[in-house]
């Protein structure tokens, strides 16, 4: 039943290469790059939500921290982006640690509220600290990335860069899940009581994964900032955090490929729905509702279930 991992990754790499070489349209490449950035966001959050079972409604903040840190360091202080990247991640990690320490003691709705509050505060800082962040009018002139003789200012190269980072993160997350740490995370998700009884330091582990997901969020923010070269607080507001949660839930909790599907759907839908003009948001909402009603466990699991059902329908079935 399960497809060998190497085949899946092989398919993934082939798809990225083919798309990268044959898609000429600048707009398509841009949308596909955004899917990559959103996949990163969903991937990090999925580790926290899907695997450790802890919700965060403030992850837009880490996305923003990544973007603003690199913007400020590269523009105001002429840092090389490759130096500002570790700084951005380090800052996100530090903030996540300090925020996670008290909030992760909460659970369920309360953790949701706590992280929501954090996201709001971060957003207000992005918007109101005008001298540093440019305030509501945004931050302009973020340089594009270069590595030696490769310039990532072309849409195609940036597409490859983003998807290479996605691939690395998919592998990292995949390895994490199939490890002692990943098992412990899933154990917390299933029964925190039993996880503690087998000797898992649940608080420590939750904090670790919170910090990890913040780092991935900051990485996505970094890639976003150097791609768009202009950032404004609206990108990292409460709705951004909610969109991240939606990607995880729609794609399928506890599935690294779910992050990809959820990100793809949530990035593509608004683009497709432009045709509906004024009704865009209504159609968007309806589609979300229909997906959740028909596939309550998300796209990945839902599609697998359909596939398995079809298999049984042909009379072949599965021997466990």
């Amino acid at each position: 039943m399960s497809i060998p991992k190497i085949l899946i990754y092989g398919f993934f790499v082939t798809a990225v290469l083919l798309i990268g070489y044959f898609v000429e349209n600048y707009y398509y490449l841009q949308v596909l790059t955004f899917i990559g950035i959103n996949t990163l966001l969903a991937l990090g959050l999925n580790m926290l939500m899907g695997y450790a079972g802890q919700i965060s409604l403030g992850h837009g903040a880490f996305y923003g921290i990544g973007a603003y840190t690199t913007a400020i360091l590269t523009v105001n202080y002429q840092f090389s982006p490759w130096l500002s990247l570790p700084c951005a991640i380090l800052l996100a990690v530090t903030v996540a640690f300090l925020v996670g320490l008290p909030t992760l003691k909460l659970s369920g709705y309360y953790l949701g509220m706590g992280t929501l509050g954090f996201g709001m505060i971060a957003f207000i800082i992005f918007r109101e600290w005008t001298s540093l962040t440019g305030g509501a009018s945004g931050f302009v002139g973020i340089p594009s990335l270069e590595a030696g003789f490769i310039s990532f200012s072309s849409a195609r190269n940036y597409f490859f860069l983003v998807w290479a980072v996605v691939l690395i993160n998919l592998i990292v997350c995949g390895r994490m899940i199939q490890s002692r740490m990943g098992r412990a995370l899933r154990a917390i998700h299933d029964s925190e009581k039993a996880a503690m009884a087998v000797g898992i330091n649940t608080m420590h582990l939750k904090l670790q994964i919170f910090v990890f997901s913040a780092a991935v969020g900051a990485l996505a923010g970094f890639l976003y900032a150097h791609y768009i070269s202009f950032i404004s607080p609206g990108t990292f507001d409460f709705l951004a955090s909610v969109r991240m949660v939606t990607m995880v839930v729609i794609g399928g909790m506890a599935s690294i490929w779910g992050a990809l599907l959820g990100a793809a759907l949530l990035t593509l839908l608004p683009e497709w729905l432009h045709a509906f003009a004024d009704f865009e948001m209504i159609v968007y909402g309806l589609i979300m509702m229909i997906v959740m009603i028909l596939l309550p466990r998300g796209l990945t699991r839902g599609l697998l279930d359909l596939y398995e059902k079809a298999g049984e329908g042909t009379g072949k079935g599965h021997d466990n």
Partner: peptide, 8 residues
């Protein structure tokens, strides 16, 4: 009441 990790 048996506390297993049920999804595992």
């Amino acid at each position: 009441n048996v506390e297993l990790f049920e999804s595992m």
